[in-house]
Design a binder for these strands. Structure first.
Lengths: 233, 233
DNA sequence: TAGATTGTTAATCGATTAACAATC
DNA sequence: TAGATTGTTAATCGATTAACAATC
């Protein structure tokens, strides 16, 4: 009798639902960069690449690339290297580009508008469904094609529209109370630009805090201590 | 006869010019966060704090805080802890907030405008002197009090006005050629938002590449693999 | 002084790199 | 097949944590 995990159909199903909980954050934070480089290679019409070539392009070691990828499975082929299209697709899948995530932006100040205008979301398979603000003069209008609603309707809207991700560009005083609404409305991830470290009680909700100021300060430090090497690649 | 490095005046002078070239990037990237927390404590009117207390607030170990700070000198006092005002000032100094750095913003699209509107720069002692664009309809105007000039005058302006830092918010196609102008004009640091990894030939010029898309993708990954812990603090 | 907490060394842990057998 | 390059184990390196003597 055949073992159940030898049946290809079942195996595929299993892989589709596989969760990676034990991969180190260092590896995860490198995945988007691999994805970017592979996307560039793909657009350049290249078919395949070895870890050695990619490593030279990216300024890392070939060992690191192979180790990182093998946290998720064997995506390459001995003697050949990696198929660029396949690998790009696989990493995209790992990063959730096929999940069809739906996002809202809260706050329509300069940063909110800038994020409404970018292709940052679409490129990663994330749809911006709506924006929210308290400024009556823009409620009911559209910003770069995204409708703006009053923040009072945020909770109900997120539930109704099964929103996965919220982008917070509100003043830091408002951040916590808005976040509480979002968590109660079942949002799973918060991308926080509110210049404070947001903590939410529900541990299943992921928060990614952005501190551009920290980045600027690091740059200033490097300029002051003028090192001979570039600060970040 | 007294040894030269026992003379306090000389010692101070030396320290003022001290450069830290051997401190690990991991430590450096934590400094702005310490600075933020100490700033909050300072504004809250607190006088002193122990590594243990601060560690609890920040979600790190007390050991790490003491190790990190001791890369730069003994800022605390046994049995007492750290004087918040003094430590905040010292870390600020390390990060270059007293250097009076002067910056320009290149590109006055949504992101450029958002950066023109923030207090991110002033808070860190960086002055925004001018913005540059190619759009004739805004050249000669001011954006949030910052004058806008044509990009053709960028190089000469940076030399004349001794610009230290340039903020790049131009389309990625333009980034490299603008960067070349900046490097030739003696700019020491480039804060790059152009969605590509900028590399400059002059190794003394520091580049800090910002990839917001990478951050969004990391968030999506965490949402997909819904971990029980927050992605970033 | 006694208690507290730093500065610093030593131990542990994790991440990166090197090496090589497996294999395409 | 021979050559190339992966997947993976073992060795190295660096960063974090623990411990404690110094000292305020």
């Amino acid at each position: 009798m055949q073992s159940i995990d030898k049946v290809p159909g079942i195996l595929e199903k299993k892989e589709e639902f596989l969760r990676f909980t034990d991969v180190s954050p260092a590896v995860i934070r490198r995945l988007p960069r691999y994805h970017r480089y592979l996307g560039d290679l793909l657009r350049a019409g290249k078919m395949r690449i070895s870890s050695k070539e990619l490593a030279a392009m990216m300024g890392v070691t070939a060992s690191q690339i192979r180790q990182d990828l093998n946290c998720f499975g064997g995506f390459g082929q001995q003697g050949y290297g990696y198929n660029i299209k396949y690998l790009h697709g696989k990493i995209g899948e790992l990063l959730g580009t096929n999940e069809g995530y739906r996002a809202v932006i809260i706050g329509s100040g300069n940063l909110g508008r800038a994020l409404a205008a970018t292709h940052t979301f679409d490129r990663r398979g994330v749809t911006r469904v709506a924006m929210f603000d308290t400024n009556q003069s823009i409620i009911g209008t559209e910003i770069y094609g995204i409708p703006v609603y009053h923040v009072d309707s945020l909770g109900a809207f997120c539930i109704e529209n099964r929103i996965d991700i919220a982008v917070l560009t509100v003043p830091k005083e408002a951040a916590k109370s808005v976040a509480d609404v979002l968590v109660r409305a079942g949002v799973k991830g918060i991308w926080n630009f509110a210049n404070m470290e947001l903590k939410v009680e529900d541990e299943s909700v992921v928060v990614e805090n952005i501190h551009l100021g920290d980045s600027l300060m690091t740059l200033c430090y490097e300029v002051k201590n003028r090192s001979a090497v570039s600060a970040d690649e």
